[in-house]
Design a protein around this nucleic acid. Structure first.
Length: 497
RNA sequence: GGCGCAUUCGUCUAGUGGUUAGGACGCAAGGUUCUCAACCUUGAAACAGGGGUUCAAUUCCCCUAUGCGCUACCA
């Protein structure tokens, strides 16, 4: 039987970082064993589900490069089948109608209400004391026929336990005492989550369910449904959660944009880098390697390598430099500087286009220059945004001068105001615009002015790029070319007092 | 309240009944350098606590603590 896994988000927001990792692991697992990776949108909660969320999630998945197999399944489209399943169980006596009026949680905190109710019961087991569990079929049918509203509950047996062998957490057992007669169908006819999931997973012939650990205890309920339906449950693998610093839940409400996949895309992350980072959050191949191309991830992925404890996504909301996990940023920088240049170029092109710095020549006559320049400047960049930010001076005459750079590298040495234009004149007569002659000329110039070559270099860098930091000055001369270099050396803009 | 799951440097993690408990990010120092990165070298940094079992426990068992999850006619 071929392996079939699914990623099943509910469209109530953008693609969350934890969901993204669940999708990743499902994807890697499927590709590793040569199975199918399916997508199901769990849009049964119509009040909260939006088309926009669905779109955003799909966008996120696409960005990450997880292509799904087969058609996307929308859970809402299967409500009829879910209802039929509940009715079938009712017919077979494996479920019953509960005519208890629907309770109204109102504005009360749901968690508090649960605890309150449990405390009232003081540890007594009240799982099977529903008064409608054992009423006669006749009475049940009659009340239903009279139009009395009811929910359908699964009839969980008195004695016994469910068990399953989780691929991550090992053998899990749960006594029936701990499981209430769960509602399958609401009194308004809508199926509940546990029923819907089981029905859809059966329908989609899912063989392995890989999902967040928050479903670990619910799995027992789902197994009961599988059994009632006469189906064999799939294999389960539960994933540890990704938490915020301090061990708290990572939520969009509290932590905002940082949990959204689109944030990373828009911040200039490479999907490959983020994917790599995500893969190592809760999974390890058991070796010291950390950089994995997608093909390698697929090849090495195994459920055995999944951790059992939750991971913290480490960031500091109060520190701009640490707006997201340091290691994620490191991965991105590492990818930017080590990717084969031809793989990086399309991303830079896109960035320059969106920053209005793009010129068609970069793809034509100046293609070689473009590749060389990107290669030169990428080494100290962290995100794709840097190509249009710090890298602006390489692609445009319209760039800003960093005030600190001007102070430190130009104004602190007032002589440079005369020297640099003078250097420009010298350069004018240089025919061979390559490293050695350039270096010779500049160092001779410095010697002549009785100053350190660094003073000239740093001053020139500030004038030519607007920054105090950047590639070797000679390399900047080379890449900018004679004309622009001379022009900028003579420019007075930066000196503007 | 009940039930479940977890706990190795700040973070991500490797690992084992006997190890100097390893790596990565970050941090610090030094080297290199026209600056900043990169790179190289070095450093600080961890087995939650208490009981067992054992010749030996970070590793196995129990308890406690802490965190997380579930406990809903939410998903």
């Amino acid at each position: 039987m071929t392996t079939r896994v699914r990623f099943a988000p509910s469209p109530t927001g953008y693609l969350h970082i934890g969901s993204a990792r669940t999708a990743l692991f499902n994807y890697l697992y499927a590709r590793n064993v040569g199975g199918k990776f399916l997508l199901r949108i769990e849009d049964t909660d119509l009040a909260r589900s939006t088309e926009e969320s669905t779109r955003s999630i799909l966008e996120g998945l696409e960005w990450l490069g997880f292509s799904h197999d087969e058609e996307i399944v929308f859970q809402s489209g299967n409500a009829g089948k879910h209802r039929a399943a509940a009715l079938k169980l009712l017919e077979e006596g494996k479920a019953y109608r509960d005519f208890t009026p629907k309770g109204d949680p109102g504005e009360k905190n749901i968690k508090a209400a649960i605890v309150e109710r449990a405390r009232a019961n003081q540890g007594e087991k009240h799982m099977r004391d529903n008064e409608f569990r054992d009423i006669s079929k006749n009475e049940s049918d009659k009340r239903a026929a009279d139009g009395e509203p009811f929910a359908i509950r699964l009839k969980v047996p008195f004695e016994g336990k469910t068990s399953f062998d989780d691929a991550v957490y090992g053998l899990q057992e749960r006594d029936f005492d701990e499981i209430e007669d769960l509602v399958l169908l609401r009194s308004d006819g809508h199926p509940l989550y546990n029923l819907a999931v089981v029905c859809d997973d059966i329908e989609m012939a899912i063989t392995d369910v890989i999902r967040g650990q928050d479903h670990l205890t619910n799995t027992h309920k789902q197994i009961l449904i599988y059994e009632a339906l006469g189906k064999t449950p799939p294999r389960f693998a539960h994933l540890p959660l990704i938490l915020a610093p301090g061990g708290k839940k990572l939520s969009k409400r509290i932590h905002g944009e940082i949990v959204s996949m689109t944030t990373y895309r828009d911040a200039g992350f490479l999907a490959a880098a983020f994917r790599n980072f995500l893969a190592l959050l809760g999974w390890s191949a058991g070796e010291e390697q950390e950089i994995y191309r997608l093909a390698e991830l697929i090849e090495k992925f195994s459920l055995d390598g999944i951790h059992r404890s939750n991971a913290t996504f480490n960031f500091d909301a109060n520190n701009e430099r640490r707006w997201t996990d340091d290691k994620a940023i490191w991965f991105n920088a590492e990818y930017i500087r080590t990717l084969p240049i031809e793989d990086l170029l399309p991303h830079v092109v896109k960035e320059l286009k969106s920053a209005k710095l793009w010129r068609e020549e970069y793809e034509e006559d100046d293609a070689e220059w473009f590749a060389k320049t990107v290669d030169l400047i990428r080494e100290r960049f962290y995100t794709l945004k840097d190509f249009s930010g710090q890298g602006r001076a390489y692609f445009s005459e319209d760039f800003d001068f960093d005030e600190k750079a001007v102070q430190k590298n130009l104004k602190k040495h007032p002589d440079l105001k005369e020297w640099l234009p003078e250097l420009a004149d010298r350069l004018e007569s240089l025919d061979d615009w390559t490293h050695d002659p350039l270096y010779d000329l500049v160092s001779k110039f410095a010697e002549e002015k009785n100053t350190k070559v660094g003073v000239i270099m740093n001053g020139a860098r500030a004038l030519l790029t607007g920054l105090a930091v950047g590639p070797s000055m000679i390399a900047v001369f080379e890449t900018l070319g004679k004309e622009k270099s001379i022009m900028r050396l003579k420019s007075r803009i930066a000196w503007n007092e």
